[in-house]
Write a protein that binds this DNA or RNA. Structure first.
Lengths: 203, 203
DNA sequence: CCCTCAATTAACAAAAATGTTAAACAAAAT
DNA sequence: ATTTTGTTTAACATTTTTGTTAATTGAGGG
């Protein structure tokens, strides 16, 4: 047994998170989770009452953590390009850890869009406005072709996220091995920056 | 009753396809499908033996149709930029029809990557090589910054597809209404072309 | 040493989903 | 008219998954 054994409750949450959002097995049963965690299935009910409550809690935690990180980056006082590069970095790191969190957001929220409501962060709007100001300045300086903040951000998110969530498809299309894919992903941080700014990334 | 009532088998397939790949409700039960189609649940078993076989058939059909369309475009004799613009068009149209097909590919294939094997089209490799030749020529001509065919295509796919499959998330982030989102998506064909070629699309 | 109490377990109950079957039906063939 | 055939239905059986409960364990406090 490991020196610092996780408390059962925490262990369940971590295991569930891994199965749901790393392995992408969103419909994993309580039995699968229990087996993977090496505990009795009843423990899940003991600590979380029901499968749905467990799922909710795990999702909400992962989502909040992620979103907070991202908005923090976007709200910082860094110059525009540094901020964007840092956003790419954070976004990709986070998505590498939980590639299927994004995927869950997509399918699950589609059937029940309420779920996402709770992530309306207080100063989201303010951060966006400020970022947009920076973006438009950058455009005026000629560093970027005219674009709205919405399209700009969707571009970034698309270019970072899609390759992560559609790994199997892309690997098949281009006959890329697992280790090859890792390299491919790492290359993308530069590729994306260059594409967006039409210029090499800082250092 | 409608004048040209669909044959039951076809009706089931169409209904299932809609629920699975338009509504994104991948875990829809046989009952839900039967209800939506207005038929007895046993009919699904009568025509398709099991839920899984139905799912497989529906998926395989949608996938094959999509892929064929895309490869056809990529294998055509059109000049590079026309071909690419046509690819964007086809890709987006198809994804608008079945936004969650992509999503299914992502989650389901993740747990069972074999599923995708069957879509190894005979002249995929040839089409890719030819396309790459065109791409590299375009780059030499100075029409494009140096890039591999893999990154180039992943860029295109990302920029087209991600906004479709992550509609709910983006709508929430930027407070966009449903009708606003439609407009947003249509704008993207131009946006993507401009981003990739750093220049306005043809006509 | 016994009591207490949270944590754990196995066995059970309930619910939800899938799969099967035998009978009813209805149109076409004989 | 009756048989045949493919389709449809309702009722039943099975399987899978979730949820509950009562008994067991084991560490700390009195």
């Amino acid at each position: 047994m490991p020196a610092e054994e996780l408390e059962t409750e925490e262990l369940i949450k971590e295991t569930a998170k891994r199965i749901f959002f790393q392995k992408g097995h969103l419909k994993a049963t309580t039995q699968e989770i229990a087996d993977e965690a090496g505990i009795n299935r009843a423990m899940i009910h003991y600590y979380f009452r029901s499968r749905d409550l467990l799922f909710d809690k795990v999702f909400k935690e992962a989502m909040t953590k992620t979103m907070n990180k991202l908005w923090e980056v976007l709200s910082s006082d860094e110059p525009f390009r540094v901020k964007i590069y840092s956003f790419l970095d954070t976004f990709i790191s986070q998505a590498v850890d939980y590639p299927y969190l994004e995927n869950f957001i997509i399918t699950e929220i589609a059937t029940d869009p309420e779920r996402i409501e709770c992530f309306g962060f207080k100063d989201k709007k303010k951060a966006l406005i400020q970022l947009n100001k920076q973006l438009q300045q950058e455009i005026k300086k000629g560093g970027l072709a005219p674009i709205t903040i919405e399209h700009f951000m969707v571009n970034m998110m698309s270019l970072c996220n899609y390759p992560l969530i559609s790994k199997p498809l892309i690997q098949n299309l281009f006959s890329i091995t697992d280790s090859g894919y890792k390299k491919f992903l790492l290359e993308r941080k530069e590729i994306v920056y260059r594409l967006i700014f039409n210029k090499n990334p800082p250092k």
